[in-house]
Amino acid sequence: MPEPRATTHGPIRLVLVDDHRMFRAGVRTELDDSLPVVGEAGDVDTAVEVIRRERPDVVLLDVHLPGGNGRGGTDVILGCAGTTTESGAPVRFLALSVSDAAEDVISVIRAGARGYVTKTIVGEDLVTAIHRVADGDAVFSPRLAGFVLDAFGAAAGEIAEVDSELDRLSAREREVMRLIARGYQYKEVAKELFISVKTVETHVSSVLRKLQLSSRHELTAWAMNRHLL
């Protein structure tokens, strides 16, 4: 694991960052008591201020926000760099967006978001995703998995020789990504590949790390030239 896992099972303190009040209200109603919302913000500057003050476990972050340097959610993540919770774990970000644009996906992930889901996600899956991000794991929607397969050339058959290679996915990571793109939950992926859920999480986190660190040319070029379907 690249980051220490949070072992507490107390309530996960949330901050909602979205410039649509209606959407924030909608998300609130879908969350149960184990996920108290301790702050809300509608623009970059307020978001940074609220997150630094409240030190939440997880921030639900819209990609497109007014204010800052004009890069929305990316600016929030960069502005909150180094902020930790009371227990010393880093504040984790889960990007939530209506955007289909690849440059938005790559931008927030490379800034440090632990996952990316679209706003059409059902409430149950959102709760699962928040718990997963709070535990330091990565959350990949089918769309993000498809993006990764495309960007790393894995769909075209490029596979890393060694797992540590940053610019390619390993064969196992590719299998995991393919199953997630097919709509499988982590536990279904685990069952399919005869591995544990924990191992699936390890693979996904590893892919996230590659996505954040890789200097692979196609990653940026692809994101600039193409939009996700």
């Binding site: 059902v122 075209a156 709509g183």
Partner: peptide, 11 residues
């Protein structure tokens, strides 16, 4: 639902 479709165009 959810219904998801995945199409992979490989070599």
């Amino acid at each position: 639902p959810p219904v998801s479709a995945y199409v992979e165009c490989g070599a």
